[in-house]
């Protein structure tokens, strides 16, 4: 019987090396490409012919767009609107990554720590870039809480700096842990069904509930990742808000 962790193994489909760098096309790359093509297809058909009474694809595209726009406006106010393309891309990529893993024989690329960490690092670098472009050297004020006495600065600045640097780690670990734990649990219960034979019906009910729950987690984690991206952007735009 297969291990519940077998589903997270990376398989090379097209081995490719540039010097010491391994850039092979793997199952993770394949599903990332599928996610990318799915997003482009959805948005292309959703916005190709805009109607007053929207069709199915246009409705989905509009709902997603408005959802992310509202999220961004609530977190950052009007000033954050111009970062919508970035935030929307992050949301759709994470959401499709989570959902593609729910298809049988699919691969959840968001259950790979290196990928979620890379994604969190991109968010982190964008936030720093926005902060520096908007405030210049004053961006460093973020590391000293507003109203704190200057005497406390030698203690508060390292604490705030560590807190700031920990953001990509907590952001990536949260997404990775949730997706990996959820999919492992699904597989474990599926294996119970197989091993219990004729009595496996009882676990089928639990497994059906878990699949529903996993869909919820897939949406929720994409939402949490996006909300935190918006909050970090808000910090960079407004500094001490």
């Amino acid at each position: 019987m297969e291990s519940p962790l077998h589903q997270f193994e990376i398989h090379r489909y097209l081995p490719l090396n540039i010097g010491p760098l391994d850039i092979s096309f793997t199952n993770a790359s394949l599903f990332m490409a599928i996610a990318f093509i799915s997003i482009i297809t959805l948005l292309y058909f959703g916005t190709r012919t805009m109607k007053i009474v929207p069709g199915a694809a246009q409705s989905v595209a509009e709902v997603i767009y408005e959802f992310v726009l509202n999220l961004l406006e609530e977190s950052t106010g009007g000033k954050g609107k111009k970062y919508l393309p970035f935030v929307l891309s992050v949301f759709l990529f994470v959401l499709f990554g989570n959902l593609l893993g729910m298809i049988p024989y699919g691969f959840t690329f968001t259950s790979q720590l290196i990928l979620t960490f890379g994604l969190a690092c991109i968010v982190f670098l964008v936030v720093i870039g926005v902060g520096i472009l908007k405030h210049g050297i004053k961006f460093l004020q973020l590391f000293l809480p507003e109203g704190a006495p200057l005497v406390m600065a030698p203690l508060l600045i390292p604490i705030e700096l560590i807190s700031f640097l920990s953001r990509p780690i907590s952001l990536s670990v949260r997404l990775f842990a949730n997706m990996m734990a959820g999919h492992t649990m699904l597989k474990v219960f599926a294996l119970f069904t197989v091993s219990l034979g004729i009595y496996g019906f009882s676990t089928v009910i639990v497994n059906s509930l878990l699949i529903g729950f996993e869909f919820l987690v897939a949406f929720l984690q994409a939402y949490v990742f996006t909300v935190l991206t918006c909050l970090y952007l808000n910090d960079a735009i407004h500094l001490h808000s």
Binding site: I162, S163, L165, S166, R167, I169, S170, V173, R174, A177
Partner: peptide
């Protein structure tokens, strides 16, 4: 996760 990531970053630094 917030707590753990801060400890990891602090210790690594």
């Amino acid at each position: 996760t917030d707590m753990l990531s801060c400890i990891i970053v602090g210790t690594l630094l």
